[in-house]
Write a protein that binds this DNA or RNA. Structure first.
Lengths: 139, 139
DNA sequence: ATATTTGCAAAGCCTTTGCAGGGGA
DNA sequence: TCCCCTGCAAAGGCTTTGCAAATAT
């Protein structure tokens, strides 16, 4: 079951893009409707497949350009996980962790509240971010 | 500073490979001298570069074949981290975490004792492995 | 009018594969 | 002998880039 998503209108998306300094072109708005409302950790390829059905003639280059623009603008986060060569994109930009189902390759967001993490690294290590990946099997 | 390494002799390496069920060919022994004694999270490419200097005429295919054999035999662990498309190989096969220096790309092993991690995931998530990556800057 | 964005194709990087020749058990 | 290993070159998957045409401000 994918995470619950808010349904943004094209106008809301346009506003959000503008405010983030991203030119709200038709292609970018279309992709955002998928990325922000529907998708759950999609790969560039899955995004392209969706676009082919819903907004014909977006090129792969535009998909990647758009993803880069959205990541740079802080609207998306890009993740790369060890089980796949493809990056996935997450509209959940707040701190959280992930669970990977080894069998299906499915990813699930894990709220930071579920994890108690305290660390005592040597002083020389200045940590700015911690990524945690739980691997296993989901029932 | 790379982690301290044991210096194995060719004979010791040969024994270890045999015991792990890996045919100890000249190329594999050579690569192991680097992987087990010298290298610190090398990529396939770095391994190849070392080989070009120290054991001319090992092909990239053999490097990858050897790495796969060693990983399958449990002698190495393969890791993929988000900052790079290249896999890295770690002769530390026990449970441990990593610190990534964002500036240099250098990786450091973090002992599990330095990390206190307790998790309360929903029952449906059966966790078999946890990967933790600390990102930041090393002084 | 000027700067961005788009789409196509080509190139790039990392890794795997097919296959013929070679070496170890 | 037989099977595994090696090396080369080619192919594969994902992403980036160059460039001309189209679009936005």
């Amino acid at each position: 079951m994918p995470a619950k998503k808010t349904l943004f209108s094209a106008l809301e998306i346009e506003k959000r893009l503008s405010e983030a300094g991203v030119q709200p072109t038709a292609q970018r708005i279309a992709l955002c409707r998928y990325l922000l409302c529907e998708a759950d950790h999609p790969t560039a390829d899955e995004i392209k497949k969706w676009a082919d059905l819903n907004f014909p003639k977006i090129s792969m280059a535009t998909v990647y350009n758009t993803l880069k623009a959205l990541v740079d603008a802080g609207i998306l986060k890009e993740f790369k996980f060890p089980h796949s060569d493809s990056a996935v994109y997450d509209c959940n930009t707040s701190v959280h962790y992930h669970f990977l189902d080894e069998k299906t390759g499915e990813l699930f967001d894990i709220a930071p509240e579920a994890v108690n993490l305290s660390v005592k690294l040597q002083d020389k290590f200045k940590v700015t971010e911690i990524q945690v990946l739980f691997r296993g099997r989901k029932k």
